[in-house]
């Protein structure tokens, strides 16, 4: 399915763009597309002779320099040494709060997701948290999450971390920490702002003219389909295989 591949390639490239300027980006569990985006950024910076980017892919041996066990990512974030990270959510609301636990009443939730992972902590500490969720639907993007795994804004405590952008299969949003909400930045090819309105269950700001998310150029695609998928295969063999087979 080449259209599925094209969609993923746009997501990976958009992530690399969103990470522009970071010195160290970490990628958590079960995140092949963010991992590929981080690897693409690193490869592009190297190719263009720009400042190097460190990446820490959780679960990787080759793309992870931590030596102090599972706690090091969290310590590193607390020391201000992680600039960017990715979080998802079974539900994400218009205030940027995320739910990784489940729907309905806790603990016997109707649908149960894996759990909060490190979100409750990292959301406070990492300045550029990119919310990434492929499914763009009203069941994911809700007015209010059923369970707050991690809250985006907490005036009662000082924090440097929080949401920076929200990327989905259909669109890219910016997060405005002052206003406490999202604004539509661009829609991916083939979608319209009306599609986004129809599939988003929360209110967000929309500019008068909504741009289209740029497609990757030929050089980026060559890098992505070659070196990046090879690097990714160590941690995400099934994903890398599927992307190669779609070629």
């Amino acid at each position: 399915m080449s259209s599925d591949r094209e969609r993923r390639e746009i997501l990976i490239t958009t992530i690399a763009d969103l990470l522009d300027g970071v010195r160290h980006v970490a990628v958590g569990a079960s995140s092949p597309i963010p991992a590929a985006g981080a690897m693409l950024l690193r490869a592009r910076q190297k190719r263009d002779g720009k400042p190097p980017v460190r990446i820490s892919i959780l679960g990787s041996q080759a793309h992870n320099f931590f030596t102090n066990g599972g706690i090091e990512l969290f310590d590193c974030a607390a020391q201000g040494r992680v600039d960017a990270f990715f979080l998802g959510g079974g539900q994400i609301d218009g205030h940027g709060n995320i739910n990784l636990v489940g729907t309905g009443d806790y603990p016997r939730t109707d649908v149960r997701w894996p759990g909060s992972f490190g979100s409750a902590y990292l959301y406070h500490l990492i300045p550029r948290v990119i919310l990434f969720r492929e499914e763009h639907s009203p069941r994911v993007f809700v007015p209010k999450v059923d369970f707050v795994s991690a809250r985006a804004i907490t005036p009662e405590v000082a924090r440097r971390g929080g949401p920076y952008a929200l990327l989905t299969n259909m669109a890219l949003f910016d997060f405005d920490r002052e206003a406490g909400g999202f604004s539509l930045r661009s829609v991916h090819p083939a979608y319209t702002p009306a599609d986004i309105r129809e599939n988003t269950g929360f209110a967000y700001a929309e500019p008068e003219v909504v741009r289209e998310t740029p497609r990757p150029d030929a050089a980026t695609l060559a890098l992505l389909r070659g070196q990046i998928l090879d690097e990714l295969a160590e941690t995400y063999p099934a994903f890398a295989r599927a992307m190669k087979q779609a070629a």
């Binding site: 569990a29 079960s30 092949p32 679960g59 990784l100 489940g102 603990p107 016997r108 939730t109 109707d110 649908v111 149960r112 997701w113 894996p114 759990g115 909060s116 992972f117 490190g118 995400y236 063999p237 099934a238 994903f239």
Partner: peptide
């Protein structure tokens, strides 16, 4: 006591999900 139960690339953990639902 856990921060998550997941089978990684294979997907959600089915018995965990069923047990949560059943309490």
């Amino acid at each position: 006591e856990t921060s998550a139960i997941s089978l990684g690339e294979a997907g959600g953990a089915p018995r965990f999900g069923a047990a949560v639902k059943a309490g």
